[in-house]
């Protein structure tokens, strides 16, 4: 069996600078493994250890996605090998385009039984790419996944749904996004990092995938920085907690907040 674990090498918007015109400057935001991805890796690894499956990390991102640090970070966390596209043209790609590139990479791998992904990426944070990928592959896309196991017919998964839990059986391919606490990701030790350097990495050229251009044309008309100016910004140094607390509570009462 083959399990694909999707991941994203992405910067944290927390570290980005935004100018008053809303232009985002990412230079001070270093890219790293997106926060929820190790959960999917862990679930994939646990499944693979029980079934003898192979865990293949797949990503489509900017050139940094192919860096030595990016490769080792992923391959030291339970992933057996990588198949990736690293092309700066993908940095601003929309969810449907990224999903098309990922679908194309997954088809190149050959027989894949299931795709696992974290709930969303740290930068775009939409949770859409994996669900659109399911549609590209013609598979079912399911969210809220907590556990999966192999059965004679295919897979059995547990998932969170509004108001409770569900167990499903799946035959044929599926794209599954995991809940953030589905598994506790491992910490990579020195031995994992050394072993990671020897694992195979297949870097595919974007142009070799032949992903067609989108029909819908999206043109950016304007950008802006959300206005934070309406806040009062009254900052009290509270070395005298009683006086400081009384001051703030009094202000809240005067504004009829309390």
């Amino acid at each position: 069996m083959r399990v694909v674990a999707l991941y994203k090498w992405a910067p944290n918007p927390q570290d980005a600078q935004v100018d008053p015109e809303g232009i985002v400057d990412w230079r001070r935001a270093t890219e790293a493994l997106s926060e929820y991805d190790p959960v999917a890796f862990e679930l994939a690894r646990g499944f693979a250890d029980l079934t003898g499956a192979e865990v293949i990390g797949v990503t489509a991102g900017g050139s940094a996605a192919s860096s030595s640090l990016a490769r080792k970070t992923v391959l030291s966390r339970g992933v057996d090998r990588l198949v990736l596209v690293a092309d700066d043209r993908l940095k601003a790609a929309d969810s449907t385009t990224l999903a098309a590139v990922l679908a194309s990479l997954i088809r190149r791998i050959g027989q894949v039984d299931v795709v696992l992904a974290g709930v969303s990426s740290v930068d775009v944070n939409e949770g859409q790419v994996s669900m659109t990928l399911a549609a590209h592959l013609g598979w079912i896309g399911l969210g809220g996944i907590r556990a999966l196991e192999a059965t004679d017919q295919g897979l059995r998964v547990d998932r969170d749904v509004p108001g409770g839990r569900e167990t499903l059986t799946l035959a044929g391919g599926a794209v599954l996004t995991t809940v953030a606490d589905a598994a506790v990701p491992r910490r990579a030790g020195m031995r994992d990092i050394l072993a990671a350097a020897k694992k195979p990495v297949d870097v595919v050229e974007l142009d070799d995938l032949g992903v067609p251009a989108a029909h819908v044309v999206v043109s950016r008309v304007a950008t802006s920085r959300p206005d934070n100016a309406k806040r009062q910004h009254v900052i009290v140094e509270a070395s005298e907690p009683a006086a400081a607390a009384a001051q703030v509570i009094s202000a809240l009462r005067q504004r009829n907040v309390l």
């Binding site: 929309d94 969810s95 385009t97 659109t132 590209h136 969210g143 809220g144 509004p162 989108a214 029909h215």
Partner: peptide
């Protein structure tokens, strides 16, 4: 914007060739 909603919209996006 639930996971079920995103699964349905993702299919619409692929069919129409545009992003969600």
């Amino acid at each position: 914007d639930t996971t079920a909603g995103r699964a349905l919209l993702g299919a619409v996006a692929v069919r129409c060739g545009g992003p969600v």
